[in-house]
Design a protein around this nucleic acid. Sequence first.
DNA 1: AAAACATGCAAAG
DNA 2: TTTGCCTGTTTTC
Length: 330
Amino acid sequence: MPEGHSIHRIARQFRANFAGRTVRASSPQGRFAAGAARLDGRELTEAKASGKHLFLGFGPELWLHVHLGIYGAWDFAGEITVDDTIASSRGRIGQTNQHGTVVGAARGAAEHEDSLASIGAPRRARLHMAETEKASSAPAEFPPEPVGQVRVRLLTDTAVADLRGPTVCELLDDAGVAAVLDRLGPDPALDGSEQAEDEFVRRAAGKTQPIAVVLMDQSVVGGIGNIYRAELLFRHRLDPFRRTKDVGEQTLHELWRDWDHLLAEGIRTGQMLTMDGLDEQALQRAMASRADRHWVYKREGLPCRVCGTSIAMTEIAGRKLYWCPFCQKP
DNA sequence: AAAACATGCAAAG
DNA sequence: TTTGCCTGTTTTC
């Protein structure tokens, strides 16, 4: 279920707790036994994300490539770093100032940094990372017994990471990683350059498919899922069904920059906050209820926050699409 | 408590 | 086009 921000946070977790460590690798479930055997005893050297894809490097020419799909999750335990704004309570989100503006909102790739004030020294804990995150107290024993269908377990002296339910879990060499990255569209959190922005516009601009479909096409731009798609379209008051070639390059550039902004916020907070500038009260409501968290996503039949029109929903390309028929008129 | 649903994707048919 | 993944969350009974 996770969209791009979650995968970047998982990559960061691996950098913080596993990079530079020798790992024991196994497949408690058995379905990745051969792959785990090849990883076993090697050093985890690198962790990066592009779109919804995670790449863990194990020295030269050996990568673990993971895609979580809908059900996938990583569970960390042991001596691990924890983002305390998430914690077990589902968290307080970023400080807001008197204008209701989010303070410290990242504005680009340069600000996607690992060193966040909210992440302290490693401590004994457990951390579930999927589309949402939940921290809890550490299991009594280390390493803990695998729970459920653990495809891969990566274990250091002090930390363990269990992968369950992935759509993709495979080993690649450098060329294999390059091939995957090549078929993926640019990801502003991986590459916030102007070239990446131009690449997105180039990949999108000529398409006759609806903009709602193209935004979720991972070969056009990385990391946008069903929620960010719906919310981006509303934020730009765009008719979801307009052919992408008719959207205009200016708007495509604006969509890229807004995605950069939302993704940076998602990575920073661990939450998909798609309504900027909420006051404290609205923020509390948003945290308490999904229906109060977004402009249109999962708000079918509820009044549009801007014009009061009933939010519409239909299925397009097998996924539910939410939009305001008035604000996002053709 | 049980059922329905989902913030994807790839493989199978 | 359908199925499998294999789980957490939300909704319904």
